[in-house]
Design a protein around this nucleic acid. Structure first.
Length: 800
RNA sequence: GCGGGUGUGGCGGAACUGGCAGACGCGCCAGACUUAGGAUCUGGUGGAUUUCCGUGCAGGUUCGAGUCCUGUCACCCGCACCA
């Protein structure tokens, strides 16, 4: 039969639209299911074959759940603010809004062509003022709770994009987007106190069904460490506080190091005979990017402070203080006690500067390398700690420090606060004004949204200020508190803002009173299954969990975790096994596949390509296997006859229902498809199938290849839409076989295969084994040592 | 260095709590139908060979190991001077 997929696709997509088949129902008494995929950034390139993989996977989940009677919310939208659009707009002199509309239209067309069952009535767009009104509203709540603050700080500045980047956006010292050099620049920035949520962001992972690598990566990124803060007195009469995780080694601290930017350098300026040298060192390191600073791991540099020394609080000895850029200003106290005997970096520095190395934990060979093992070795040369294990020594030392009032236990995090300002046009305006009298003041909520004004030029300015800063008329305003002269904040929010709460808006997308109604949030949230890329684990995923926790704290959201389950798909690689990219010339356009093979084949192939979590290379040859399968399914309609059970296939069909149902829940889409292929092969081998059984099969196939499934279902007399019909339910009793094939092994080698009644016990099975000619032949002249029978599985006879 | 992961035919990949390794698909080989086949259908397809060898490598546990344990190698991803 001729497989006219183009006509079929158009026909069924229209019928689904006409029936509003995939719209979530407003009935909150029904059992709900909320699967979610990350909404895309509508780039100018259009969809890439990587996009449909997760979309199709969760579409299968959504479609199956819908057929199983759940009220399903499977939404889609556009994360449309961002630099590429702005850059394109600048280059082509088109308004970014126009560019966005064009890109969205293209993406939407491509997604619709794939037959994805999104609820388009809930489509959202982060650049829509009715959406970003609420992004601004959330920011204001953060501001009001003191979680947004302005800070002069050295920030990462991309020399090409002319924009400040978050730490997360700097990869190997270059801009994540354009690969240009990133330098340090001091700017006043809005910051969000995500660090205040660090503990909860780690601890609450416990109850969540996230794949291991996501949890591990988040924990690693937040970087919680427990240690102690210790105060060292100095010869300047003040003191210097350090953070350490190895307070047990305090007796071995033979010098100290502070970051070049450390405030004490200025404080001690008059006492330091080599201040100029130190200042020069500081200037040199500030010019280096983070990358350069960390790249030369082996080469330790630094300057010894002449004029101020510290006193080790337990040995009473005076020790030198150095500045060195191996100590980071932003972590801990920006100062360390150096224990060269037990820290690799301190060891390298001590060797370079000829500093004393005092061993305080036995083990290793200190002449060659630092001994960093904490599990073996007792404390030595450590006064009251001598003889203790490292862990016990830590506890004892903290007690001592607290007794003496010179230190205490302390937890530190690698996680930094979130740099929230961007000096760009195409983002949400930050809804604040600066008043001469009142300082930073929030725009009253009823005046939201603060609309992004029309500007003449979207070009970033040479001085790094936002393009909005050039609009004097817009910038000048009055203070909402005192009515005096004020100036608007001209920075915009980062792209991560809009995506940090979009899953909430889907619950109630047209609400103009609240970001979403309490009832809708209570019903739909949390997201039941969220799938997205691993590249978003430390950015989007962490930010959105932070915002959800905040919204929970201020009683907007009923739950403190937004996603119950998080999975991640593998990448689709080019034919050559390399990552798909324009520069490698191995990009496959999904439009071509849909045109040449049809949407169902495309969907099926993306799912059949391999393990969903693993990356897999694109293979144009393999696609036709999926197409052949679909044609073979369609051709079954020509041999299908009658109603009722196809006796010879009954068990196979029920096993298939079970397999497909379980595999979808376990994300094993590839083996579900393989099983369906196997079943179709069985039907052809058998030569016939009833129309009712073929309808059942079509329903099983429906989540995967919905257009063809609808067609087959209709041809076989199915009533209504297959997409809305009940998903087949397996009758367990029909999946049980009467007999099993049991291999008989002799010394682990299969010598015969017996057909055995499922109910047969050991004795009955052994009787069969002994009666078997092949077995008898193989046992000739051998002595049986042992007979192992695992009913239903295998028989192994051990002989000599 | 730390964390996570992966090694199975020519290729993508299957294999439940240890139980016939290679499901399913691609490719390939042979045949059928054809003016034709890069369409379709049928059969075959891990390697040598009549009995073995085979899941990165080396050991171990077991009646039995792709699966468990010890060690080791290679590759991929994330973080990385975080004290």
């Amino acid at each position: 039969m001729n497989y006219d997929y183009k006509a079929q696709e158009a026909k069924w997509q229209k019928r689904w639209d006409d029936a509003h088949a995939f719209e979530a129902k407003q009935d909150f008494t029904l059992p709900k299911y909320y699967p979610l995929v990350e909404f895309p950034y509508p780039s100018g390139q259009g969809l890439h074959v990587g996009h449909p993989r997760p979309y199709t996977a969760l579409d299968i989940v959504a479609r199956k759940k819908r057929m199983q009677g759940y009220n399903v919310l499977y939404p889609m939208g556009w994360d449309a603010f961002g630099l590429p659009t702005e850059n394109f707009a600048i280059k082509n002199k088109i308004h970014p809004k126009t560019v966005t509309e064009r890109n969205v239209a293209r993406f939407k067309g491509q997604l619709k062509a794939l037959g994805l069952s999104f609820d388009w009535s809930r489509e959202i767009n982060t650049t829509d003022p009715s959406y970003y009104k609420w992004t601004q509203w959330i920011f204001l709540q953060l501001f009001k709770k003191g979680l947004a603050y302005k800070k002069e700080m050295a920030v990462n500045f991309c020399t090409s994009c002319k924009v400040v980047l978050a730490n997360e956006e700097v990869v190997n010292g270059v801009c994540e987007r354009c690969q240009s050099t990133v330098i340090r620049k001091v700017k006043s920035q809005w910051m969000l106190k995500i660090t205040e949520y660090a503990d909860r962001l780690i601890n609450d992972l416990d109850g969540l069904d996230y794949i291991e690598r996501v949890k591990a990566q988040q924990i690693n990124w937040i970087g919680r460490s427990t240690g102690a803060q210790i105060r060292f007195a100095t010869t300047a009469g003040d003191d210097l506080t350090v953070y350490t995780t190895r307070c047990d080694t305090l007796f071995g601290a033979t010098y100290m190091v502070i970051a070049p930017e450390h405030a004490m350098v200025e404080k001690w300026k008059d006492r330091l005979s080599n201040y100029d040298e130190i200042a020069a060192y500081r200037t040199a390191s500030s010019r280096k990017s983070d990358f350069e600073r960390t790249e030369l791991v082996k080469e330790k540099t630094g300057v010894c402070l002449q004029g101020v020394r510290a006193i080790n609080p337990v040995t009473g000895k005076e020790i030198p203080i150095f500045v060195s850029d191996y100590v980071l200003a932003g972590y801990g106290t920006g100062a360390i006690m150096a224990v060269p005997a037990h820290d690799d970096r301190d060891f390298a520095f001590a060797k370079a500067f000829g500093l004393p190395i005092v061993q305080v934990v036995e083990g290793g060979s200190i002449e060659e390398a630092a001994y960093t093992d904490v599990d073996t070795g007792k404390m030595i040369h450590s006064g009251f700690l001598n003889g203790l294990d490292v862990e016990d020594a830590k506890v004892r030392m903290i007690e001592y420090l607290e007794e003496k009032g010179i230190g205490h236990a302390k937890v530190n995090f690698k996680l930094r606060d979130w740099v929230f300002s961007r000096q760009r046009y195409w983002g949400e305006p930050i809804p604040l004004v600066e008043c001469e009298h009142c300082g930073w003041v929030a725009i009253p909520e009823e005046q939201l949204p603060v609309m992004l004004p029309e500007v003449d030029s979207y070009e970033p300015t040479e001085n790094g200020e936002s393009p909005l800063s050039a609009m004097e008329d817009w910038v000048r305003c009055t203070c909402p508190v005192c009515g005096g002269a004020a100036r608007r904040e001209t920075d915009t929010m980062p792209q991560w803002a809009g995506s940090s709460w979009y899953f909430l808006r889907y619950c109630d997308p047209h609400n103009d009173k609240e970001l979403a109604s309490r009832e809708a949030l209570a019903y739909w949230m949390p997201v039941d299954w969220y799938n997205g890329g691993m590249e978003h684990t430390t950015l989007h995923l962490l930010y959105s969990r932070f915002w959800a926790k905040f919204l929970y704290d201020i009683d907007v959201l009923p739950q403190s975790e937004p996603y119950s389950k998080r999975t991640s798909h593998g990448m689709i690689l080019g034919e050559n096994g390399e990552k798909m990219s324009k520069s490698r010339g191995n990009v496959v356009n999904p439009d071509d596949i849909v045109r040449d093979y049809g949407a169902d084949t495309m969907r099926l192939y993306e799912m059949f390509i391999g393990d969903f979590e693993q990356s897999a290379p694109w293979n144009p040859q393999s696609i036709k296997g999926c197409k052949r399968f679909l044609e073979r399914v369609l051709n079954l309609t020509e041999i299908a006859e009658g109603e009722g059970v196809t006796a010879a296939l009954e068990k196979k069909l029920h096993k298939l229902i079970k397999k497909v149902t379980e595999d979808i829940d376990a994300m094993k889409f590839n083996t579900a498809i393989a099983a369906m292929m196997g079943f179709v092969n069985d039907v052809y081998d058998h030569g016939s199938i009833t129309k009712s059984d073929l309808r059942t099969f079509a329903l099983l196939l429906c989540p995967f290849a919905p257009h063809l499934a609808e067609e087959v279902y209709e041809m076989m007399g199915g009533v209504g839409l297959a997409s809305l019909a009940p998903f087949p339910v397996c009758d367990e009793s029909k999946t049980v076989d009467d007999t099993v094939q049991m291999p008989v092994q002799i010394n682990g080698k299969v010598r015969a295969v017996l057909t055995v009644d499922v109910q047969a016990d050991k004795e009955a099975i052994l009787a069969l084994v002994h009666a078997d000619a092949k077995v008898a032949e193989a046992l000739q002249g051998k002595t049986v040592v042992k007979e192992i029978v695992i009913p239903g599985r295998i028989i192994n006879i051990v002989v000599k």
